[in-house]
Design a protein around this nucleic acid. Structure first.
Lengths: 212, 212, 212, 212
DNA sequence: CATGAATGAGGTTTCATTCAT
DNA sequence: TATGAATGAAACCTCATTCAT
């Protein structure tokens, strides 16, 4: 059962020709656009295909069903963000805590903001059947990276409580989401970045004080 | 335009007979249940009516369409939480900042946790057409209350930056959401409460240091 | 079967009390109003009852179903017009043809125009199941009266061809309908009256010339 | 507003493949059939699709809603008749009045009788929301053609009164409708043709006498 | 490979009618 | 008798998906 549904969500085939790659890209883009302009409940495969400039049949050659289409872009985006966080964590190993946090949080926000339209669009489908599950798996990955990194901070005694990591991540993700859904102008994004750094820094510092 | 859509979301009529009040209540409950058991995309008016033990026709006597049904319970829940925050703010006027934050954050979490099932269920529909708008309006209300309260703190110089309030609220709401969507056991809820208090406290303290 | 459907269209009971008569009248009126304001396809029993200021239940105490309601007012109106034509025919017996036609046509138009709103409204339901049948029966009645009358004209030799009568009636009814559906101002109604008299007069005169 | 409703009534897309053209034709035909066999109030899109031998979905690929389906065939028929009248008017320019009327009236009746089933069926829906409006627009077209033609008659002094034209058209249309709704046998149709010519001829002659 | 016509289950919504109060 | 809550069949319409061309 699980196997089946897992497979059902995978893209049907990889584009081998150059032209096909363009098609797949066009469909992805169209999905975002439709999501933003029409909303999640009026996103239909036909509309997506239309916007992408291909026929429905073509869409179904690359994605076995509607969900797989949504999952593909959701996964892609989440992977991108996770990767950014992981990379930032790795680069920050051994640095002082405050610096760690500054860098990682900054990279997280930047990753989300590379394409605000995609981020915004995806909030609208993240609730879909299995969506939250995918989100959770992704967060897990980031949390592990964060946990590993913090352990290497020279100015922290003991290991961080796992829940605290989740807390911090939730705060980061939650605040970012809120700002995006409010239709953020660039200036606000910058503010978000600063304040989020501050918020996380003082939170982790407070925690280490308690632990001590 | 706004008028029309606003009206379309309002319940159709108030029950005048006692029997009718029971019916309306049953429909509300059933909506939550279906949302939890079947998910947002398999929530149909027929299913809701069935679960409520009434006919579809009856459902449509009280709600002009599916959206109005979802809105009604979303609005109810958001109002409840907003009211809790407002009350907490009022009660905390003039107290020291740390205490303020402790009380308000605690009340916020408690309000969300009164019925975790409803909270969880509503995350699944808050994305619906107009949902985010409603959510934003509600947050506005809470932010105003928070802003007003903080101004009365004896140990804070100057007024808080509006964006900081939004930040804090987003962190609160975001973290709570994450915990709930992860399927929180009661013990975690308690931890969430503590950590959220800590996180917000040190954030606002850090802010006032900066301001000074 | 025929018996059954015939009965199903009859009003359920005659109002015996004065209050009841008022109610029935109110329902009739409301039906017209709804027909005019909402159109035939949005005429619902609930809406009619509402407009009449009674509950649906009450409506169903006087009419066994929706059709009977519509038929009642359709029949009433048609009867009124038929009666007017018959009376006019009787009064014109023995008069010269031109005078006959002038009087009858005038009376017909007047009968239709007593309440233009009712006439207009009824065009919208005359198509209903069985409507055309009722209309035909009514026309039959008028045609017989016309035929009987024309036979008594001193300036006509031989009897009129039955089809010619139908022709004349159709022209009268059709032209009147057209004018009403175009939203006739009173001045047009007067013109209609004149021209219809002229049209019918010269038609019947032409016919008698041929016959001779 | 008008734009929206206008668009809502237009067919959704033109068939591009040969197969599709057949489908559209089948749907049109089926609509007439259902209208005749089941009546206007029992005409459902499902029934039409069934009779056409296609699925409902297919129907909705070509017509955005039920009304547009009905409008399409109503418009087609009305256009055909209007065109016939216009052509006849053009051909009769400059001929004597009696001949004009004979030819035009004949063409009108013939056009209506090409497919008596369609004509009959359409009387049943012409009342639909917007139906009368469409009918009026169509009549306007014919009236203009008639007016233009009569001006060219050598044996008529002055121009005809506009109302008289409407009168004549109404008489023509009304009488034809009556005969068709009575379930006309071919022999009656021939009679209608003759009598209508006579009726109109003597009417217009009478008018010119008055004018003179 | 691409197309787009066709499918039909299933969703939302209406409304004539009944019946307990 | 009057009310209006409840019913549920049936209408309209959408859209994910398939498949012949």
């Amino acid at each position: 059962m699980i196997h089946k549904s897992q497979r059902a969500l995978k893209p049907r085939k990889m584009p081998v020709q150059a032209r096909a790659a363009l098609t797949v890209e066009a469909i992805s883009e169209a999905t975002i656009q439709v999501l933003l302009s029409s909303g999640a409940d009026r996103l239909t495969t036909t509309r997506v295909a239309e916007r992408a400039g291909v026929s429905v049949g073509t869409l179904y050659q690359y994605y076995p069903n509607k969900q797989s289409l949504l999952f593909a872009i959701l996964e892609q985006q989440l992977d991108r963000v996770s990767a950014a966080v992981e990379a930032a964590c790795e680069q920050s190993c051994g640095k002082p805590l405050a610096e760690m946090v500054r860098y990682v949080v900054g990279q997280f926000v930047d990753a989300k903001m590379v394409r605000t339209d995609i981020s915004t669009a995806l909030y609208r489908i993240s609730v879909y059947l299995g969506g939250p599950e995918l989100v959770r798996r992704t967060e897990e990955r980031s949390r592990k990276a964060l946990e590993g990194m913090i352990k290497t901070a020279p100015d922290v005694a003991g290991k961080p409580e796992p829940f605290a990591i989740q807390m911090m991540y939730s705060a980061m993700a939650g605040a970012t989401r809120n700002v995006l859904e409010a239709g953020a102008p660039p200036v606000m994004v910058r503010k978000l970045r600063e304040h989020l750094v501050l918020l996380c820094q003082c939170y982790v510092r407070a925690l280490s004080n308690i632990t001590r």
